[in-house]
Amino acid sequence: MEKIPIIKMGDFLLVSIQVDMHDRLAMALQDDLTIRVAKERSKGVLIDISSLDVVDSFIGRMLDNIAAMTRALGTETVVVGMQPAVAITIVELGLSLENIYTALNVDKGMALLEARMKASVDENDE
C-alpha cells in the first residue's frame, strides 16, 4: 500500500503531504506518525500542507487528532504552509482547528517548535 513518507530531521519529524489523500491513507498517516513520535522520542512534528488544495472536515479532524496525540506524548505539532484559498474555505466550513499550531513555512515552523521547546525547558527549570 502507498504511504505518506515521514522524514526525520534532527529532533523533528517532517511530513510533506504531496498527494490528494483518500481517507484510509490519512488514517494510516495518523497511526504511523504517533508510532514514530513515540519510538524516536521526537521533539516536534511538522506537517507541510502547502501542496494540499483541499482540507475538508475529515483531513481537518485528522490534523487535530495528530496534534492531540503527539501532545499527549509530550511533543508539539505544527501545520505549515496552508494556502489562502484553503484557509478561507476552512473558516467558512466552520472548522476551528483551535488546538493546532500553524506557521507560514517549514523554517518558521521549526523556529516556533524550538521557541516552544526552550520555553518549556525554562518553565521546568523554575
Binding site: 505549515v80 504552509g81 496552508m82 494556502q83 489562502p84 484557509a87 478561507i88 476552512i90 473558516v91 467558512e92 476551528s96 482547528l97 500553524t102 506557521a103 507560514l104 513555512n105 518558521k108 515552523g109
Partner: peptide
C-alpha cells in the same frame, strides 16, 4: 473576523 481566522490558520 474570518480573515483574521484564515490568517491564523496560515500561521500569521
Amino acid at each position: 473576523l474570518k480573515t483574521v481566522s484564515a490568517a491564523r490558520l496560515m500561521g500569521a
